[in-house]
Design a protein around this nucleic acid. Structure first.
Length: 271
DNA sequence: CAACGGACCTGCCTGC
DNA sequence: TGCAGGCAGGTCCGTT
C-alpha cells in the first residue's frame, strides 16, 4: 500500500475537490474487498454532502452528517478523482459519484483494501478506536515509545509497525527510520533506552515528513488524488538496497526476513 | 496479555 | 514463448 505519506497525499489531493459536494450514488462493480462493501454504504451515502476528508492512520474518512465512509487502500489501492463517465478499468471496483459529474474511483488490484460505513463518530469505529498515536502529532514522542515498549520482547521493527503502538509506519519507513536512528531492527523493543527512543521518534517523523513534502511516494504505480503519477523523489537509504554500500560507512547493507517482511539494515551503523 | 503464523488477492519478475 | 514459483508497500484474526 500506500504508506502513510501516500494516504496523506491522496487526502490532500481529493479534499478540495470533494468537500461540500453531494454524493449522488455509489457504484459497486466488485464488492469482494478485504471485507464486503456494506449495503449501508450504498444506501446511506447518496444524498449526503462531504463535510470533510479526514485521515486516521492509513484510513481516509469521508465525513457526512449521516455517517462516515472509511477507506483503506490496502497494499495496492488508489483513490482518484475522475469524470464520472470515464470508462472503468479491470480493477476499478467502486465509484463514489457526485452530483457535479465527478467521481472518486477506488481501484485496488489486490483487493486488500476496504470501504466501510459507520453511523457512529468515526473515531469510535472498532478499527480506529484502539489505534496508537499519529506519528506527526504532538502526543507521539520518544518518551511515549519508551513507555509503550516496557517489558516487550518483540523486535523493535515489528514493534513500530504495530498500529496499536503508532500508526502509519509501514515496512519502507520502518527500515529507513531504524537506519537513521542507528538501531538494529532485531533488538528487543523493551531493551532500548529512552534516549535512543527519542532519536527513533524523531527519525520516524523525519522520514514521513520528507516523503509527504516530496508529494508522496516511492510506489511505482501510485497515482495521487488528482490523477498525477507519483514521484521517485524520496531517497531511500537502505530499503531495497541489499548488498549496496551503506551511505554512512560503505559496508554492504544486509537483507533479512522478519515476520515474512524484508528488512534492510547496516550491521555496522545499527546496534 | 504477548507473540507468531496464516489469511486475504493479483501482478510482476525471474529462471527454467 | 510459456509456465511455475516467489515476492510485493498491510493488517486483522486465531492459536499458542
Amino acid at each position: 500500500m500506500p504508506e502513510l505519506p501516500e494516504v496523506e497525499t491522496t487526502r490532500r489531493g481529493i479534499a478540495p475537490h470533494v468537500t461540500g459536494r453531494i454524493v449522488s450514488r455509489v457504484l459497486v462493480r466488485e464488492p469482494r474487498l478485504r471485507w464486503p462493501v456494506p449495503h449501508a454504504l450504498i444506501e446511506q451515502l447518496p444524498g449526503q454532502a462531504i463535510a470533510s476528508v479526514g485521515r486516521r492512520g492509513k484510513y481516509l474518512l469521508l465525513e457526512t452528517a449521516a455517517g462516515a465512509a472509511l477507506v483503506h487502500l490496502g497494499m495496492s489501492g488508489s483513490l482518484r478523482l475522475i469524470e464520472a463517465d470515464a470508462p472503468p478499468g479491470t480493477h476499478d471496483h467502486v465509484d463514489i459519484v457526485f452530483a457535479d459529474g465527478h467521481a472518486l474511483r477506488f481501484r485496488d488490484p489486490r483487493r486488500f483494501g476496504s470501504l466501510l460505513w459507520t453511523t457512529r463518530p468515526s473515531q469510535e469505529h472498532p478499527l480506529l478506536r484502539d489505534l496508537g498515536p499519529e506519528p506527526l502529532d504532538g502526543d507521539f514522542s520518544g518518551g511515549y515509545l519508551s513507555a509503550a515498549a516496557r517489558g516487550r520482547r518483540v523486535a523493535v521493527k515489528p514493534f513500530i509497525m504495530n498500529s496499536h503502538v503508532v500508526v502509519g509506519v509501514g515496512n519502507i519507513y520502518a527500515n529507513e527510520a531504524l537506519y537513521l536512528a542507528g538501531i538494529h531492527p532485531r533488538r528487543a523493543a523493551g531493551r532500548i533506552g529512552r534516549d535512543r527512543y527519542h532519536r527513533l521518534a524523531a527519525a520516524i517523523r523525519r522520514v514521513l515528513d520528507e516523503s509527504i513534502t516530496a508529494g508522496g511516494t516511492t510506489l511505482r504505480d501510485f497515482i495521487n488524488g488528482v490523477g498525477e503519477p507519483g514521484y521517485f523523489a524520496v531517497h531511500l537509504r537502505v530499503y531495497g538496497r541489499g548488498g549496496e554500500p551503506c551511505p554512512g560507512c560503505a559496508r554492504p547493507i544486509r537483507e533479512i526476513r522478519q515476520g515474512q517482511r524484508s528488512t534492510f539494515y547496516c550491521p555496522a551503523c545499527q546496534k
